[in-house]
Design a protein around this nucleic acid. Structure first.
Length: 799
DNA sequence: GATTAGGGTTAG
């Protein structure tokens, strides 16, 4: 069998052939050459074994790159693996979450769930004899009941008893001096590793557990990455092979030979993800239970002092606090001081000190706007912390512990009453030493606090910064800026001439009217551009969302239940189509149906009805035929699926019908006199009211005089030079829309950095609940691209 | 192969 359990631990039993070359997960693409290549990662998810019939199984699992750099985003370092056949069964029985896995002989495909699960855009598929897996078990004891035969790649059978290691954990109150133990505990105090006078780095901790005993713990290790990864008080720690020692009349813990440590987030309900750099640590179901028990217990104690983490918006002068932030730039000041420019997206109520450094010494690019908007905090890092800060790269996410908020030394003249430093600008000092846990570290991008911070930074708009100091800049008309607005990002294509007016003017006049304005983009919705794709019915004028793949998959599997023999005057071709790779569908036959009428004209292949297929199979078959209509047969009558699903697949394009306005007529004579089968003639033949794709966005516009919300709908396609239908099927077209928005509104940009747009605005009234209100739409305007793509598609009508 | 530190604010 091709699952190979490698000997416990990192010892010499590793038998992975040395000629295999490893590809880092983030670098995998569908075009990767996979021969002789391996992929390695930790199993972070293991799905159930799905039986597809005799000796035919499917199993989905997710592995995560272990060696990924801290700046690497989670979505690219975790990848789905689909296992087929006996391999799936074997995997199911021999691999657990937390194990290290190395695979070879795989193929790379596009992951159909990438949008949903936010993992790697590709998946790995393993089937057949060429596929091999090497497993480094993390918990051996749990698997002791399953005796395993281990087969080497050369098929020489060797049987080895798997070593059973059962760890016992001692409550902290039961510790006796002079023994080596394993413990599980909650961290109540910690220092990031610091250099000792000896050869190692030292981490100093205080920990406790349900016995309520508090124990000091000192970890010596010369490798920084082997120190516990503790991010905040309340984190859970597991220590293996620490020795007890009596010091000052109390038990303390000290690293001993073979020491290892794993840590976990301490929040109740968050995923139990071990934090370690070790590939050979052991971790299983029992560990999850211990971690969760400790979390629950700790949640009811007051172990952690009042929240030391404070955003810049809540910082009090002269206090010490922990700051979670993003590094914008850094610069060495002198041998014992480094400047870090950071922000956390919140605005400090106190003016922030600016620290001037020579521009050529600055690494990274702080934008001036963040300084002007009082968003950039200048952190001076001293002495022992300089060495740590040297490793940081701008863009990374940091936590700085015990940061001192110091009002600036810009004392007013002494004839003032002497209290003047209170009004100084706030600077931040990370003083030398490690008292109170003083220190700093990079946090991985996937840690919960960083995900929160990223959300804030991403959705950060300039709305908070139009205070009085900024107002002058805001209300300055574009012409009077130092540089002329020579780069206008859009141009009007209307043939009327009306005078350009301000937004304030626009709002003061009543619709209907047409305006020309020159504005900047303040914000837009939706931020996820695929959500701007809509379906429009010309008949009933309704707009609906394009359903996501999960919804469509559901409709397809629902339809599979109703599959059976049917007779509609179609020539039926029951094809035991090879379901390869074996799909998740029940073992039903795939049925292709063709029109006997079309058969007579020799055009049968141009319109094919497909019954019993999954979405994925339909897509695959659609790539080979021009028109695929998925059908089902409740009560023996062939009919298209529920119209929430696409009624037609043409290549990569999907077409939808209006539920309200369609009058299905499948089964009758088909397409008399139809010359060309396209979405329109198929819709006509089936009685489907075809829905048209459109792009709908809400743009918030600004000029010096005010703000205005305007829709982009009727002329959205010509605005982006993209057809909505293409955008629905084609990532490249979607990317073009994204690129345009990024140009008009660069992520994280200030107003000053955004280009101006010449727009033609149409004002009209809509009535909602008896209330009339003015609405605005951008029309007759196109972006000036470097690369205009014009599409002759029709655009949706006014709503 | 032993040693390091053993929480409890810099002083810029």
């Amino acid at each position: 069998m091709p699952v190979l359990v490698v000997k416990d631990g990192p010892g010499p039993g590793t038998q992975v052939p040395s000629q295999l070359q490893r590809i880092p997960i983030p670098l995998l693409s569908p075009t990767s050459d996979c021969t002789g290549k391996t992929v390695k990662g930790r199993v972070v998810h293991k799905g159930p074994l799905v039986s597809m019939g005799e000796d035919n199984y499917v199993l989905k699992t997710v592995i995560q790159e272990v060696d990924s750099q801290q700046n690497m985003s989670l979505e690219h370092s975790s990848i789905n693996i689909i296992l087929f056949g006996v391999l799936a069964k074997d995997y199911s029985e021999s691999v657990s979450q937390g194990d290290m896995l190395l695979v070879t002989g795989f193929s790379v495909g596009n992951s159909p769930t990438a949008q949903k699960d936010k993992l790697h855009a590709c998946n790995l598929q393993l089937a057949g004899d060429d596929a091999w897996m090497y497993v480094w078990p993390s918990t051996v004891s749990l698997r002791a009941s399953v005796p395993r035969k281990i087969t080497s790649p050369a098929s020489t059978e060797v049987t080895k008893a798997v070593k059973v290691v059962k760890y016992t954990y001692v409550p902290l109150s039961d510790l006796k001096p002079g023994v080596v133990v394993n413990v599980y505990a909650v961290v109540t105090f910690f220092k990031q590793p610091f250099r000792t006078k000896g050869t190692d780095y030292c981490s100093t901790l205080k920990i406790t557990d349900q016995s309520n005993q508090k124990v000091g713990c000192t970890i010596f290790c010369d490798k920084l990455e082997e120190h516990p990864k503790i991010f905040k008080m309340g984190d859970i720690i597991r220590l293996h092979r620490v020795k007890t020692q009596l010091f000052n009349g109390a038990i303390s813990l000290l690293t001993s030979h073979g020491f290892s440590v794993v840590t976990f987030d301490g929040m109740v309900g968050s995923p139990v993800v071990p934090r370690t750099s070790s590939e050979s640590f052991k971790f299983g179901e029992e560990d999850c239970q211990v971690v969760e028990a400790l979390r629950t217990w700790a949640a009811n104690q007051s172990l952690v002092p009042a929240q030391p983490c404070v955003p810049l918006s809540a910082v009090q002068p002269k206090t010490y606090f922990d700051l979670t932030c993003q590094l914008l730039a850094k610069a060495p000041v002198d041998s014992s001081c480094t400047l870090l420019k950071v922000w956390d997206g919140s605005k400090c109520p106190h003016p922030l000190l600016d620290v001037f450094v020579e521009p050529n010494t600055l690494e990274g690019c702080p934008t001036l706007s963040k300084d002007m908007a009082n968003l950039t905090a200048n952190v001076l890092v001293y002495d022992n912390h300089v060495e740590v800060a040297r490793q940081f790269k701008p863009g990374s996410y940091l936590r700085i512990y015990n940061l001192h908020a110091v009002p600036g030394a810009s004392r007013l003249p002494s004839n003032d009453s002497g209290q003047s430093d209170q009004t100084g600008h706030l600077g931040f000092h990370l003083h030398g030493g490690t008292s109170y846990g003083r220190g700093l570290r990079v946090l991985p991008e996937d840690s919960p606090d960083i995900l929160d911070l990223k959300k804030i930074l991403e959705t950060f708009s300039e709305s908070d910064i139009n205070d009085s100091s900024m107002f002058e800049v805001w209300s300055t008309p574009p012409e009077s800026f130092g540089t002329a607005p020579d780069e206008i990002a859009t141009e009007r294509t209307c043939d009327h001439t009306v005078e350009q007016v301000s937004l304030a003017e626009v709002k003061s006049r009543s619709p209907p009217q047409v305006f020309h304005v020159q504005v900047q983009l303040k914000s837009y919705q939706p931020q996820r551009l695929y959500q701007s794709l809509k379906l429009f019915c010309h008949k009933c004028k309704t707009i609906r969302d394009v359903p996501d793949d999960v919804t469509v998959e559901g409709l397809f599997s629902e339809a599979q239940k109703d599959v059976g023999p049917c007779n509609n005057g179609y020539w039926t071709l029951v094809l035991p189509l090879p379901r390869e790779p074996p799909s998740e569908s029940p073992s039903q036959t795939l049925t292709l149906l063709m029109s006997s009428q079309l058969m007579g004209n020799g055009k049968a292949q141009e319109l094919i009805f497909l019954m019993g297929a999954t979405l994925e199979e339909t897509c695959r078959i659609a790539s080979a035929y021009s028109n695929i209509v998925p059908v089902t047969s409740p009560q023996g009558t062939m009919t298209p699926l529920d119209l929430s699903a696409p009624f037609l697949f043409r290549g990569t394009k999907r077409y939808y019908g209006c539920k309200q306005c369609s009058q299905l007529k499948v089964g009758e004579s088909l397409g008399e006199g139809v010359e060309v089968w396209d979405e329109k003639s198929v819709a006509d033949a089936l009685g489907v009211q075809l829905l048209q794709y459109g792009l709908l966005m809400k743009l918030e516009l600004q000029d010096g005089t005010g703000f205005l919300e305007a829709l982009l709908w009727r002329d959205a396609e010509s605005f982006f030079h993209v057809s909505a239908e293409d955008a629905a099927a084609d990532q490249e077209a979607q990317d073009r829309v994204q690129e345009t928005m990024d140009r008009l509104c660069p992520p994280g940009s200030s107003t000053a950095e955004r280009p101006w747009m010449d727009l033609c605005l149409s004002a009209y009234t809509v009535e909602e609940n008896g209330q009339r209100r003015a609405c605005y739409q951008i029309c007759h305007t196109g972006t000036r691209g470097t690369n205009p793509h014009t599409h002759p598609h029709a655009t949706p009508r006014d709503t």
